[in-house]
Each structure stands twice: as structure tokens, then as C-alpha cells.
Nucleic acid binder design. Structure first.
Lengths: 214, 214
DNA sequence: CTTTTTTCATACCGATCGATACGAAATCAT
DNA sequence: ATGATTTCGTATCGATCGGTATGAAAAAAG
């Protein structure tokens, strides 16, 4: 039906847009925004500078496209793994295991999470970048909250566990980028999942002296 | 005894080294390594380029000095707060509260943890940078393990809680840099501390289906 | 064919990067 | 005083940065 829309006039593009975006994502992921030069990007994407600008706009626009693409990919992967509601704790562990495998894959350096890196290197960028990353984080939390809710927790308790889990995942990502062994990360995940109390339908109990914080 | 060693020959330095390092740390903290230009640094440090190079070496050496200085400062602060063993959960919460206050202080943007930022922006740097940051993370975990051990946990359990807590702190830092409200972060800390079981002297219990991960 | 439209390759732009050469200024030693 | 030594201000270096002008190449339309 809506196939390739025949072919538009003019010289056809000599590269695949999605593949080029994937290659650019790898560069940004490994080197961060500022350290990814246009030479690095065009070399990895195997296109010329004018092609890059014609297809994606400037460097920041390309970066935002990579972020959005990565966000969608991650959300899909997390959602798919957490869809199995038969054994919630095990589903959560599998989600973490997949994330750890992604974060520690040698490429050639451990990378952590692209969104975590983006949250640091967006310093010189526009507020759009921060909003894009914050949106991704909020989306992950939403997927997790839905998961915990389906696992039997009340909305409040589910939202709390979602934030805790997202925070922990963020920490796992950072330690992965620092080179922490994947097995250690998996062990930590096991302890974390074990510590979450899945039975309660409300918020977890709070110590009496909690108000001493402030 | 070992006072200021009289005064060395030559023109005396016109600025305070520690103050300059503090100013440089602020710049690196806010902008990351690559985005902190020498103009930014010299402007914040109120010194000229040759003075910077004469006193600290090149940009990377200055960065490593800032990292080491920050690491020592953080370790001291964490150690001091966790020294109070009267009420371990409360001491841990105070430590987190201080960290959150540091991470979310407007300056003018929320900054998170310098070490977390460093773990991302050390891409173009030498392995020295990664080792310095990894050392800092290990030191934090060591301080936390000692704290949990003093709180009554067995060495294994203490080390596990230390890794979990360090990971969670890392995650808090990242969310802080993304602009998450400090009160939400404090609430999450409250839940996290409540979830840790302080009574047990051994490792936390693990679900039976743990081996399904691999 | 010619015309039109889009992509692509080369070469280049001004700006900014990290780093330094040079000499004046400031202090100690004599 | 003079010389030695170190710091500091200015001015600048070559390299690299992100971004672009120009024209050839490749397709559809006439």
C-alpha cells in the first residue's frame, strides 16, 4: 500500500538512513556528544558531510534523532521483557540482565547507557536535549510502574518501586561504564530484586525516625 | 616546623592554588571535560594561561587534580557523616540527604556528582582518568562496607549493601542532574533505606528462582 | 536529447581549540 | 645597586572544530 512511494525525482540517496543513524548512535554512545567530531561521525556513517547535513540537519539535530531512536528501542525492549507477568521478580531480573549485557558489551569499551551519558554531555546543548532524556527516564519509570502494578502492587507502591528500580538501573549503567564486572552487577541486581517486597499492596514501611532527615 | 618553607626565589605566585583548583572543579563539574575550554577555566580561576600551565600542567593534569581533590573531599564528608554509629539507618539517610543537597544545588544548573560526569566524559582521556574515578567508587564502597559492618552486618552482607548503596547513590546523582526534584529523591532514599534489612547478619535472602537469570 | 531536481565529492570557510614564545614584572641572593 | 629565578600578560601558533559553497553525478520528467 504505502510502499516506497515509487521513487522521488532527483538522484537517489546512496545510503540507508536507519543504518547511518545506528552508526552515529554508536559514535555518540562511545565518545559523548562533544567528543564525537563530524569526521568521526561521517567516517562511521560512511557518508560525506553534505550528505549528513542534507539528511539529518546539523550535529545537534542528528544527536537528538539518535537519542529518540535509542529511547524508543530501549522502551520497546524493556516493555517486551516485562510483559511476561507469570513471574514478576524473574521478569525484572531478566530485564536487568539484558540491560547489563547491553551496557557491558565490549565495543570496544564498556558504554553504560546512552541516556546516562547524554544526561552528562548535554551541557552545551539546548534544553531540548535535557527534555528528551528526561522524557526517556519518565517513560522508563512509567513502564516499570505499570509492571509493578500488574504484579499486584497498589498504584502508590508501584510508582515507588518504579522510581527505585529506575534509579538502580541508572546506577548499574554508570558502574558498567566504569568497568565493573558484569557478574558483580548481576549479583547486585539479584540482591536488589530480592530486597523489594512484592507481597505488599501499599507503600513499603518507613522507619519511625524518618523525619530526622531534614 | 614545616611552615611555608620561608619563601622560594623568584616572583611569588599571585593566586591561591587551592582556590584556583576549586574554581576549576566547578567548571569541569558543570560543563564536563571536553566542554570546559581553557578560556572558561582561566576566567573562573582568574589566572592567565601560562600561570595555569606553570602551576598545574596541561588541561588533563588539571582535571585529574580536580578529580582527586573532589574524591578526597567526598570521602571525608561521607566518612564523617557515617561515623555516627548510634542510629545507622538515620546516619545513612543523612549521608544521602547531604549528597542530594550537593547534587541539586543550583549552580546554576543541577550538577549531579562530578565523578559520575567524569565517568562519562573520560572518553578521550587516558586510562589514568578512568582509574581515578574507579578508585573513587571503590573507596566509597569501602567506606560504606565499613559502615554496614559497624552497623552489625557480617562482612559479606556489609559488602553487598555497600555495593547496592553505591549503585543507588550513583543513580540518585544521575537523576539529580536530569532535574528531578530533591524532595522526590529524598523520598526515594527513604524507601531504599527502609527496604534494606538491617537486622540480618548475613546476606539477604535470595529467591529460589534466582538461577533463571542466565 | 534537454531540463529539472536531488545527492554527493572536494575543497574550503571563519571560529575556536589547547598549548606556547616572548618579554616585562616581581622577588631573592649577593 | 646587579644577576638569577620565577611568575604573569600579551600575542600568537598550528590543529581541529562545526558548517558550507561549488559543481559534478545520477535519477525522473519533458
Amino acid at each position: 500500500m504505502k510502499k516506497a512511494a515509487a521513487r522521488p525525482p532527483g538522484r537517489p540517496r546512496g545510503f540507508d538512513v536507519d543504518s547511518a543513524l545506528d552508526a552515529a548512535t554508536q559514535v555518540f554512545w562511545a565518545r559523548g556528544y562533544s567528543d564525537a567530531s563530524l569526521d568521526d561521525l561521517t567516517a562511521a556513517m560512511a557518508i560525506s558531510r553534505p550528505s549528513l547535513y542534507g539528511a539529518f540537519g546539523d550535529k545537534q539535530a542528528l544527536y537528538l534523532k539518535c537519542i529518540a531512536r535509542y529511547r524508543g528501542w530501549v522502551l520497546g525492549a524493556i516493555g517486551a521483557t516485562l510483559a511476561d507477568a507469570a513471574d514478576p521478580p524473574n521478569a525484572l531480573r531478566r530485564m536487568f540482565a539484558e540491560a547489563i549485557a547491553l551496557y557491558t558489551a565490549p565495543a570496544p569499551e564498556p558504554r553504560g547507557c546512552l541516556l546516562a551519558s547524554a544526561s552528562v554531555s548535554e551541557a552545551p546543548l539546548s534544553p531540548e536535549s535535557r527534555e528528551s532524556v528526561a522524557l526517556a527516564l519518565a517513560s522508563v519509570e512509567a513502564v516499570l510502574a505499570d509492571f509493578f502494578h500488574r504484579a499486584g502492587l497498589a498504584p502508590d507502591g508501584a510508582a515507588e518501586r518504579a522510581r527505585l528500580t529506575a534509579t538502580f538501573l541508572y546506577g548499574i549503567s554508570g558502574r558498567a561504564r566504569l568497568g565493573v564486572n558484569a557478574q558483580i552487577l548481576r549479583d547486585d541486581v539479584g540482591r536488589f530484586v530480592a530486597l523489594l517486597d512484592w507481597g505488599r499492596r501499599g507503600p513499603a514501611p518507613i522507619d519511625a525516625d524518618r523525619d530526622n532527615i531534614a
